[in-house]
């Protein structure tokens, strides 16, 4: 069975572990790995007038930086391991966006890393892993 594996990627060590794990599985099955980077964003946040003015410019810079500093190197690094690699950068709430991408691409699975924040931290700030477990439209693998 081939399919698309969506990997939530933020450049952290945990994300690298999740990516490696997903690539191994995808290579074995002849599937595609879609590396997804989400820039945290809410359309209901409050900005100063100067931030409003520069938002479009900043967004372009953020996307460029994410592409050149994060996505391009990692795609280069993991290419040739037997799985086809794609990448995508989006804005939004991380868990929501990963679910949207999974639906759009009719993905088989979502993979994310977990860096072992304390339970208290997760409770206060919410955790992407627990949100995904609750809402993911496809099976979800949390890589410790």
């Amino acid at each position: 069975m081939s399919g698309t594996f969506v990997v939530g990627f933020d450049g952290s060590e945990a994300a690298h572990r999740a990516l490696d794990f997903a690539i191994e599985r995808a290579a074995a099955q002849g599937g595609t790995v879609l590396i997804a980077h989400v820039l945290e964003w809410s359309p209901y946040s409050f900005l100063t007038p100067t931030e409003l003015e520069e938002r479009h410019k900043r967004r372009r810079e953020e996307l460029e930086r994410a592409e050149t500093a994060l996505m391009a190197p990692v795609v280069k690094k993991v290419s040739g391991r037997g799985a086809e690699i794609e990448s995508v950068i989006r804005y939004g709430k991380i868990a929501d966006v990963l679910c949207e991408i999974a639906k759009e691409k009719k993905a088989a699975q979502i993979f994310i890393g977990r860096d072992g924040h304390s339970a208290l931290g997760a409770r206060v700030f919410g955790s992407v892993a627990s949100a995904l477990v609750q809402t993911a439209p496809v099976p979800c693998t949390i890589v410790p």
Binding site: W41, P43, Y44, S45, L52, R59, Y91
Partner: peptide
């Protein structure tokens, strides 16, 4: 609420943000 906002425009200034900033003035 963003019902008419193109999802591809996420990360740009939303109607809500423009209104909120103007209101704060």
């Amino acid at each position: 609420k963003g019902d008419y906002s193109d999802p591809d425009d996420a990360g740009e200034v939303s109607h809500f943000q423009a209104l909120a900033t103007a209101l704060s003035g």
